[in-house]
Simulated assay, not measured.
Amino acid sequence: MSKSSPSPVPSRLVRAGGAVTWRLRTGVRALPGQSLDPADLEVLLVHRPRYGDWSWPKGKAELNEPLPVTAVREVEEETGQVVALGAPLTTQRYRLGSGQTKEVRYWVGTPLEEGAALRTRRPVEGASHREIDARRWASPSRARALLTRRGDRRLLTEVVARAESGTLITSVVALLRHAKAVSRSSWEGDEAERPLTRLGVQQAIDLIDMLSAFGVEQIVSSPWLRCASTVGPYATAAGLDVDARPELTEDAAASDPLPASRVMEELASDAPAPVVVCAHRPTLPVLMEPLAACAPTRVQADLPRESPWLSTAEMLVAHVARSSREAASAGDGAAVTAVERHATYTKLVLPD
């Protein structure tokens, strides 16, 4: 009897997400742009009895789950702590025993104790004691001694460096292209009233988890129906009003792009809370210009460079480090430290 051929080594990439969640010690306060003493920080670790290690909370993405949604879900499942995501950290890649490559996307996480985004979170089932048997807030020095993997210690070093440089506290300014709309050629009504398709409606619903993951507390939108309908489900779930700006419509931006550009410039320089701006494809480059203007060259390279700029229901998330009052008085303003793009997987399960 001939020997059977060996099974092929799996090559599928295993996608996972997690966060290095931090907080300030009790009694310590900090302002954006302020350098933080690492001794004033605490970070959240988990212990996995199966591996006998201390690590950052993380886990594999569920089917068609965007990684930011994975990250906040896994942190809550493993620690009980609800978090909002800040700027991304270095992606970790390593080979599993099965031969697969695991890629873990990490973000800075901050505890979410109140606010609109908290109202949008779905209930999660906590990790079993067999999976996670201990959770601990620890100082960076204690965390470094506990962490088992070298890659996890590198992430801690990255967080501490940002704290010392004043860039650990960042704000989210997200630019969202509206969901899939009925085509112009098949619509005979007023352009401002062109609605979403069935796919677009589902994309808008699926965006709730994505906007929640980044802790969005403010919604700015073109008043045209396809934009308003895109952010409507999140606004309803979060209990937020939509700040409709006529200067963001296609017609207004084409006639005079400066007012639309100023909307984004003002939000990037002084948004009071994580904000999303929903707009039309032709206005996207106008709205990206203020972000590019306050971004270093390495970040500018990550901005979309050609039409259609973003896919329908895709979001460009800019992470803005704001200056301390002292830095602002010296002429240094807000700076975009990172940008990333995220979209729903709606098209995979609901073709248009």
Score class of each variant (00 low, 15 high):
residue 8 P to N: 01
residue 22 W to K: 08
residue 61 A to T: 02
residue 49 P to H: 04
residue 40 D to I: 13
residue 21 T to N: 10
residue 39 A to Q: 14
residue 38 P to W: 07
residue 10 P to C: 00
residue 65 E to H: 02
residue 9 V to A: 00
residue 50 R to L: 14
residue 14 V to P: 01
residue 56 W to L: 11
residue 21 T to E: 06
residue 10 P to H: 00
residue 44 L to T: 11
residue 31 L to D: 15
residue 44 L to F: 13
residue 38 P to G: 04
residue 41 L to P: 10
residue 66 P to W: 06
residue 48 R to V: 06
residue 56 W to V: 11
residue 48 R to Q: 07
residue 57 P to R: 03
residue 53 D to Q: 11
residue 35 S to G: 14
residue 31 L to I: 13
residue 67 L to A: 01
residue 35 S to D: 15
residue 65 E to P: 00
residue 18 G to N: 04
residue 29 R to P: 03
residue 34 Q to K: 15
residue 26 T to D: 15
residue 16 A to R: 07
residue 26 T to V: 13
residue 67 L to P: 00
residue 64 N to S: 05
residue 55 S to Y: 01
residue 61 A to R: 01
residue 41 L to E: 07
residue 36 L to D: 04
residue 39 A to F: 14
residue 31 L to G: 11
residue 42 E to G: 09
residue 41 L to W: 05
residue 34 Q to S: 15
residue 48 R to G: 03
residue 52 G to N: 08
residue 58 K to E: 05
residue 58 K to Y: 03
residue 55 S to T: 11
residue 48 R to N: 05
residue 8 P to V: 00
residue 30 A to S: 13
residue 25 R to D: 05
residue 64 N to A: 09
residue 41 L to H: 06
residue 54 W to C: 10
residue 21 T to H: 07
residue 43 V to K: 08
residue 44 L to A: 10
residue 59 G to C: 08
residue 42 E to A: 06
residue 27 G to S: 03
residue 17 G to N: 02
residue 46 V to L: 09
residue 51 Y to T: 12
residue 24 L to I: 07
residue 34 Q to R: 14
residue 33 G to Q: 13
residue 44 L to S: 10
residue 32 P to E: 11
residue 17 G to C: 04
residue 55 S to H: 03
residue 23 R to H: 13
residue 33 G to M: 15
residue 47 H to D: 04
residue 40 D to V: 12
residue 66 P to E: 06
residue 16 A to C: 08
residue 33 G to T: 14
residue 44 L to W: 11
residue 38 P to Y: 08
residue 14 V to H: 02
residue 39 A to W: 13
residue 32 P to S: 12
residue 39 A to C: 13
residue 46 V to D: 04
residue 67 L to V: 04
residue 34 Q to H: 15
residue 58 K to H: 08
residue 11 S to M: 01
residue 64 N to W: 09
residue 65 E to K: 01
residue 47 H to Y: 10
residue 24 L to C: 10
residue 66 P to C: 08
residue 21 T to I: 09
residue 62 E to H: 04
residue 38 P to R: 03
residue 38 P to V: 05
residue 62 E to V: 02
residue 53 D to A: 07
residue 40 D to M: 12
residue 47 H to W: 03
residue 53 D to S: 09
residue 67 L to S: 00
residue 52 G to S: 08
residue 16 A to P: 02
residue 15 R to H: 03
residue 59 G to R: 05
residue 41 L to T: 06
residue 66 P to H: 05
residue 17 G to L: 04
residue 57 P to Y: 07
residue 36 L to R: 02
residue 31 L to F: 14
residue 65 E to C: 01
residue 45 L to E: 07
residue 61 A to Q: 02
residue 19 A to R: 04
residue 45 L to N: 10
